[in-house]
Structures are given as structure tokens and as C-alpha cells.
């Protein structure tokens, strides 16, 4: 019973979102059926498409996890973008200069990338702890700083002179991560992180404190939680997850180097995934796969129909809004109906 309602809500909301989107597709003089057909064909239709969807999803799973855990704990970390970029840049630069055997180098680079993301989030944690600066705005501003700083580093000190756009040199070939049946190993790392995070949130006392902090900060404080340390810890952990996403994209993506615009929209996608998932960890996994499917299918959609791939960004935001709208609207509606029924009883 407890599962039926959220699942039916989700299906209803996604169906409604696709319905709204088809109006816009019709306005674009295309057939919604053809567009969705292409989306399915290239997103899920064959093993090739499906594995590509999984490969498109791994950064989203990690940034989504990052946002989910942060929001669940009442820590508004919106800095996934900046943390992601630092993870990617540090990994890309060390991947050029560090000489290690691949069995040691790949995990080391991934962890170092994650740590640089954590360090960037740690800056926000420091501001919060030392100066009581709201992490909501400071992480946002740190995004812009990270964007320009990494771009500077890729444009001047670590520039590959042979590249057309500002980018670093290709990382050493030993550090290219392999695929298992066309699926990136990075995807399995992301899956593992979902379980690890689940364990942290639901099976450790720090995770418990973080959740209590999200329910009610005052209650957590009165109950004896060290709220300041918990906040710092959550920021570091979520920064690590975003940084790891960036590092894995360098190690297991297609480019194996840091280029301008590599961060794309991964940070905000993560925030949207967390919102759709209502901060649940396994729901985050589901919605990350869903968004990965849309992104991967979008390439095929542009190829097959006249609808440009940018449409998916719009579709994504409609889905987010209808999902939260349906969820919240249904709750208000049931509350209203219940109130009316109670009132009816009283009047009688």
C-alpha cells in the first residue's frame, strides 16, 4: 500500500508531462508519436541503446545522490556544478602527469577527484561554520568561481596546444577505464555508491543525525546532535560525490580530458533528480536512469525527427514541475476531502 501510491503518482505525473510536451511537439509541426518512438528506440530499444543510457546516467546518479543527501539533511548544497568541475579538472591534470600502474592509478585518481570536490564543498562548510554564511548562496557563488578558475587552468597552465577549444591534454592511456559488456565500470561504481550512501544514511548514527537535522534542526540540536559537525560532514560527503562524478567522467567518458563546458548541466540535473526523487536514495537512482534515458534518447530524436535535442532540457523541467505539482496537489486534495468529510460528520 505504501508503495502503490507513490508509484501511481509518478506514472500519472510522467504521463501528464509527456502529454504537455506533446502539445509543444505538435506546435513544432512534428508528430509526438514519432518523437517518443525515436526517444524510446535510442534510449531503451536495444542493448546498445540501453547500455548507452546506463553510461549517460552515471554522473547523474552521483550528482543526484549528492543533492539528495544534502537536501535530506536540510543542507542546501547547490554547488554540485563547481564540485564536479574541480573533480574533473584535478583528475584530468593528474592523469597527465602522475605515473602509476593502472590498477593503482585509476582508483587513486577517482578518489583524488572526489576529494577535490569535497575540498571545494569544504570551503562552503568552512564559511558556514566560521562565519555563519548561508551555504545556499555561498555554494552557488562558488560554482561560478569554480567555472572560471578551472577554465583559466585549462586555458593557460595546462592547455593542450593542439586542441581547438580550451582543454587539457589527454590523460595517460593506462588510466582509461574499461567497459563490461559495453557498460562503463563507472556505472557500477555509481551503483556501489548508492548502496554505500544508503548504508551511511540508514545504518550509521551520523546518518541518523543528518536525517534528524533535515526533519527538524531544533529537535536535532536539543536531542544532542552536533549539528555543526554534521553539516560539515554532509557538505564534505556530498562534495565528494559530485567530485567523483567529475573524475569518473574523465576516466570513463568519451573525451578523457578536461574541456570547456564539460560540466554541462550535470549539477542542476542532480538537483532536479533529487527534487523528483523527494530525496530518497533508490528513487534518486531511478530518476537518474530516467533522465539518462531522456538525454541519450534525445540524440536519436534529433537524428530521426526535426525536433532539436535541446527539447529534452525543456521536457525535463516540465516533468519536474508536473511531478512535484501532482504530488503536492494530490496531498492538498486528499486533505481537503478529508476535512470536508469531517465537517460533514460534525454538521450532521
Amino acid at each position: 500500500m505504501s508503495l502503490v501510491r507513490p508509484i501511481s503518482q509518478t506514472i500519472l505525473a510522467i504521463a501528464f508531462a509527456f502529454f504537455v510536451a506533446s502539445i509543444f511537439i505538435l506546435l513544432h509541426h512534428s508528430s509526438p508519436l514519432e518523437v517518443y518512438g525515436a526517444l524510446y528506440q535510442y534510449g531503451l530499444g536495444s542493448w546498445f541503446s540501453f547500455s548507452n543510457t546506463l553510461n549517460a546516467a552515471f554522473p547523474l546518479i552521483l550528482t543526484g545522490l549528492s543533492a539528495s543527501i544534502a537536501f535530506m539533511s536540510g543542507v542546501v548544497n547547490l554547488g554540485q556544478h563547481g564540485q564536479f568541475l574541480w573533480g574533473a579538472l584535478v583528475c584530468a591534470v593528474l592523469g597527465v602527469y602522475l605515473k602509476l600502474p593502472s590498477w593503482l592509478g585509476i582508483p587513486a585518481l577517482a578518489v583524488l577527484g572526489g576529494l577535490s570536490g569535497a575540498a571545494w564543498a569544504g570551503l562552503a562548510a568552512f564559511f558556514k561554520r566560521k562565519y555563519k554564511m548561508d551555504e545556499f548562496i555561498s555554494t552557488l557563488m562558488l560554482n561560478f568561481l569554480a567555472e572560471y578558475m578551472t577554465l583559466y587552468l585549462a586555458t593557460y597552465p595546462f592547455l593542450d596546444p593542439k586542441a581547438y577549444v580550451p582543454s587539457t591534454r589527454l590523460i595517460r592511456r593506462e588510466y582509461f577505464m574499461t567497459n563490461i559488456f559495453d557498460v562503463n565500470v563507472a556505472f557500477f561504481v555509481a551503483l556501489f555508491m548508492v548502496f554505500l550512501c544508503w548504508w551511511f544514511v540508514w545504518r550509521t548514527w551520523r546518518g541518523y543525525e543528518a536525517r534528524m537535522m533535515g526533519y527538524n534542526k531544533l529537535f536535532a540540536t536539543v536531542g544532542g546532535c552536533d549539528v555543526e559537525t554534521d553539516t560539515t560532514l554532509v557538505l564534505l560527503l556530498t562534495g565528494f560525490l559530485s567530485g567523483l562524478a567529475g573524475a569518473l567522467l574523465i576516466l570513463n567518458g568519451t573525451q578523457h580530458r578536461f574541456t570547456k563546458g564539460i560540466g554541462a548541466n550535470f549539477g542542476w540535473d542532480g538537483v532536479m533528480i533529487a527534487i523528483m526523487a523527494n530525496n530518497g536514495l533508490f528513487q534518486t537512482l531511478f530518476y537518474a536512469l530516467f533522465i539518462g534515458f531522456l538525454k541519450n534518447g534525445a540524440v536519436g530524436m534529433e537524428f530521426e525527427t526535426s525536433v532539436p535535442s535541446e527539447f529534452v532540457l525543456f521536457l525535463q523541467s516540465i516533468i519536474v514541475l508536473t511531478l512535484v505539482g501532482t504530488r503536492s496537489g494530490l496531498v492538498s486534495l486528499t486533505d481537503w476531502l478529508r476535512a470536508k468529510r469531517e465537517l460533514g460528520k460534525l454538521v450532521k
Partner: peptide
């Protein structure tokens, strides 16, 4: 956040 994404998209 939804509206910001909607506008961007």
C-alpha cells in the same frame, strides 16, 4: 528551481 530550469530549457 523548476522555473529556472524551465526558462533555461
Amino acid at each position: 528551481i523548476g522555473i529556472n530550469m524551465l526558462a533555461l530549457g
